[in-house]
């Protein structure tokens, strides 16, 4: 039995819960509600009509393309990193783990800036690329590079602790019994890490589709060409097209809510809790 002085009184508890509820509603729920309210201000058909605008459709398609390329690249990297870091001991292993998380502590704007410094018109390779007629900044490759940078750690940092907890003996048994490395990975490792892998890919994808600062730097804001969904939100908002801006924002908010729902389900599955970052 806990003594009464070892916990708050019932009155205090109710008060603290209400205070928390008020804080969460004002800070977290109201912004979501306002997005929907503004999107549907002129009715649902008006909101949906803004999505059939060619520029909006291009933005949606571009966002899907950028994510479809960036996420698999970082997934292959994340699985490789988790395999060598969790299954082998080698000098510099700890430093490698730290370096993998580095992009999380870099401002999104700087994550875009590094690519402009490299490939922009005044960048290290700028004049060379210009002569060769290759466009990276203000084009799809730049958007992908910026997105790959900001989503770099997600899969690796989910899988590394997960695989470190798991014993390698099942994999060693498979190898001893004559399985190839690839068979061992796909039949033994993959089933063991699949929920963690989906979890990492989910968070990676949410960030890839929603990234704003890094892609804003490399995009050049060419309408109907280099605008991803978040950039289109900005453009419409600055045009005072609030219904359009908030409808596009509403789509992204739905993506965020779906991500949170799947994340909660996966956490229950893999018995892990934690932030998204």
């Amino acid at each position: 039995m806990t003594t009464s002085a070892a916990q708050e009184t019932a009155g205090t508890r109710v008060m603290l819960i209400l205070l928390t509820a008020a804080l969460l509603i004002v800070l977290l729920v109201l912004p979501l509600v306002v997005v929907l309210a503004e999107a549907f201000r002129k009715g649902i058909p008006a909101a949906l009509a803004t999505l059939s605008d060619p520029d909006s459709l291009t933005a949606i398609r571009l966002t899907l393309i950028v994510a479809a390329i960036s996420v698999p690249l970082n997934t292959v990297f994340g699985v490789s990193a988790a395999w060598c870091i969790s299954r082998f001991r080698f000098p510099g292993r700890g430093a490698l783990v730290t370096l993998i998380e580095l992009p999380f502590s870099v401002s999104p704007v700087i994550s875009g800036l590094v690519w402009v410094l490299l490939f922009g018109i005044n960048g290290w390779l700028g004049s060379f690329l210009d002569k060769a007629g290759v466009q990276i900044i203000f084009a799809l490759p730049g958007l992908i590079l910026a997105t790959v940078f900001v989503t770099f750690p997600f899969v690796a940092r989910t899988l590394i602790p997960l695989m470190q907890e798991q014993d390698a003996s099942e994999e060693e048994a498979a190898i001893t019994l004559g399985a190839t490395g690839w068979q061992t990975f796909s039949r033994v490792t993959l089933p063991n890490i699949r929920w963690g892998l989906i979890y990492g890919v989910l968070l990676c994808n949410a960030r890839a589709m929603g990234e704003f600062g890094a892609v804003a730097v490399v995009s050049g804001h060419i309408r109907g060409q280099t605008m991803t969904m978040p950039l289109q939100v900005e453009a419409l908002f600055n045009d005072y097209d609030w219904v359009g801006a908030f409808t596009m924002a509403g789509l992204l908010a739905l993506l965020a809510l779906a991500t949170l729902a799947v994340k909660a389900a996966l956490e229950w599955r893999i018995g892990r809790r934690g932030g998204m970052h």
Partner: peptide
Amino acid sequence: RNLADSLIDMPLALPTAVAGIALTAL
């Protein structure tokens, strides 16, 4: 409580541009 717990990660899941215009509108 579980719903509230999931909501806490909302600022990290919500694209920053969406958060930006939502807070501005509020």
